[in-house]
Amino acid sequence: MATNTESTQHLEVPKKRKRKLPTEVSIFLVLIGIALLFEVLGWAIRGDSFLMNPRRLLIMILQVSIIGIIAIGVTQVIITGGIDLSSGSVLALTAMVTASFAQQSDYLRAVYPALTDLPWVLPLLAGLLVGALAGLVNGALIAFAMIPPFIATLGMMVSARGMARAYTDGQPVSMLTDQFTWIGSGANPVIIFLAVAVFFHIALKYTRYGKYTYAIGANPQAARVSGINVRRHLVLVYSIAGLLAGLAGVVAAARAGTGQAGMGMMYELDAIAAAVIGGTSLAGGVGRIAGTVIGAMILGVMLSGFTFLGVDAYYQDIIKGAIIVAAVVVDQYRQRKRNKTT
């Protein structure tokens, strides 16, 4: 029996698998599940609704936005098989620089009459430039000096934080122009976050840039032999990650109305967590922006939910850590199932 069926056995299976839901859907269900859990707990413990509170939801998404913008860059870095630990510090540095360009000139005009408020574009561009430069340095160190991404971006994480402090000797930069703070007002951070997400979702899926990013993560040697300029592409991806950390810094400064060297502390880890919860594999080659956006939302819902229930911040961290690890465990399990071979 089964003599001339050749590989029909192999043919039948994956068709079934194809009908399986995309990873994003299952993560989205987890998000809904967590939100509903808080809803139930909310009624049980506080006699109040968690979800039926638009103000809380807005704050929740606002909190997510800044980390989300960073996470979109970090996701791309992780897809190439790398890591970016510097994004929180780069955020702080760019927040300082951008704020220094966005200060009101009222006070100083007494001394320097020629001084005027700069239009909002200038601080924005300055911030993006600083972020991109930091990313460029990361990328160059990794691609050309062959330093492992973990070390290169760890160095940048420490240095950029130092630069943020040194820039004003640790003083916060406040009194920013209304034009500039408008960037961070209302729902603007959310709009920026979602726009960036859509942009890079499309870039990863439909452009050569995206295909190369996945290819390098899946097998850098094969990518090189396929004619891809792996080094140049890595520099580009890290620069984009830096640029997005810079954008996050601008938004954070605008929203807070001040630039402070302590901003964005540990954000790099939240961003990595968002990517990993969203299904991006630290092994490289796998990951989607949509997943990261949902991953960031899960972090936001948890933060908001625990605060709503009055859970102590220390305990929040304990639970958050457990959830990050659980996400990776699930991912590993999924991969092992995928990798069945004869």
Binding site: K211, A215, N219, S226, A283, V286
Partner: peptide
Amino acid sequence: ETGLFLGLSVIENMEMAVL
């Protein structure tokens, strides 16, 4: 080692060099 993108699909593997 140097040929396949094991985690990627058939088409992604095939199209890579002509992109």
